[in-house]
Write a protein that binds this DNA or RNA. Structure first.
Lengths: 227, 227
DNA sequence: TTGCCCAACCTTAACAAAACCTTAAAAAAA
DNA sequence: TTTTTTTAAGGTTTTGTTAAGGTTGGGCAA
């Protein structure tokens, strides 16, 4: 579970990191532009976004993000309590809005509530695509009754694809999400894993749903052909 | 879009109904037990739930609901501002928590944000020209129901044309936009791509809208002939 | 006005070059 | 050891580019 904190106040950012590090893998950014760049990787499960920042403020970051079809849940964090600011925040696509100062617990609770929904693991941690079910708790995949054997990264890849079905994911995004930013292996491993995953799904004819978009990336979608 | 309001204060309930009736079809319940019964029908898109109610309080309603695997998004509404109450609310499965008194607009915004997500109708990012639709998210083009297969640069070209319909674009502009300034291929590739694109659109008679202006460039426009 | 010419554009096809797939072996981790 | 991950290499497919010949339309001279 990945959390991006975009907040220029380093003290606050650290403090948020402290309270959330049990639950998430954390990335921090201390200014809007960099934050936007990171968020665009589309590898985060939720983003905490401050409004008042130098160069590029939170509203601009969020607006740009949504414009680019990045739908990661965003919690806006701000000292502004006015209703107009809230309106602005939600209008540009925020999912929640928390006014400083706030209780650490409340932030945690709202993060939990958000993730619980968006990751689709509301009950029992099952993620599904058609008849293919992933049990996130014990990392097993099954189609109907039959269990499919997938190793770690193959499972992660499938999970990522399902969570973003009908959206093209570039090899870089997939790589950053599964291998991590600072991994120094080549992004061509993604091809290898896509190939392996397809091989494992072929038996059940589910390989056809993993589509390649040349020069763009991969996408999981239910449609026939290239839809 | 259906909203269930479970709130024993009739004045407040009515007032909420007033502010939300544009957006939702409203059902009201004035006590917990009845509210639970209604919510169990699982026909609502979102539920507003008061905590302090006679017979059965909001926590109990929500807990019971989640126990029965009803995952409808719930916004808790309460006069209690203590962090412990919030913890309790989220722990039993709330998605949001709003403290009275609150701005009508904020409730509306939070409802919107909630529904936007759970209904999955997040902005689809579609660019259209007449009946031709480009899905920017997964780079697919379609006319009516049929999907047209376009490769990367053809898609980019069409996107650029649509974004600038009724404006003549020179070959240089198109080239710089799609191939990039420092590309050292000849600008005549633009002609080749225009040709390919027309060929792909011909089947649907949409090739006619890509017009050539000798010595000037290309333009996409709805008019007949050279208008 | 007519007909010719030429430049601009269209279309096609062939070749080149990426991008991707698959497999297998080496390396690392469990 | 066994399993998983990474690298490497060769093969396949798709896309990009170029070139060549065909087509079109406007200008201009007769």
């Amino acid at each position: 579970m990945n959390l991006l904190i975009i907040e220029d106040d380093k003290v606050l950012s650290e403090s948020i990191k402290e309270t959330t590090k049990e639950m998430f893998h954390i990335e921090q950014s201390f200014d809007g532009e960099e934050g936007l760049y990171l968020a665009e990787q589309n590898i985060f499960d939720v983003i905490i976004l401050d409004i008042m920042m130098p160069h590029m403020n939170g509203y601009e970051v969020l607006e740009e993000l949504r414009k680019k079809s990045i739908t990661t849940p965003v919690i806006i964090l701000t000292a502004k309590d006015g209703i107009d600011d809230k309106i602005k925040g939600f209008k540009v696509g925020a999912d929640d809005y928390l006014v400083k100062p706030f209780h650490r617990e409340e932030l945690l609770l709202r993060l939990e509530a958000m993730v619980r929904r968006s990751v689709g693991s509301f009950k029992e941690n099952i993620l599904s695509f058609k008849e293919l079910h992933l049990n996130l708790k014990n990392k097993t995949a099954s189609i109907g009754e039959e269990v499919i054997k997938l190793n770690g990264k193959q499972f992660d890849l499938l999970e990522y694809l399902i969570n973003n079905k009908n959206t093209i994911l570039t090899k870089e995004q997939i790589f950053d999400r599964i291998w991590g930013f600072e991994s120094d292996t080549s992004t061509t491993v993604v091809e290898v894993y896509a190939s392996n995953l397809r091989k494992n799904l072929k038996k059940y004819d589910y390989d056809q749903y993993i589509k390649t978009f040349r020069g763009l990336g991969y996408m999981l979608s239910e449609g026939e052909g290239n839809v």
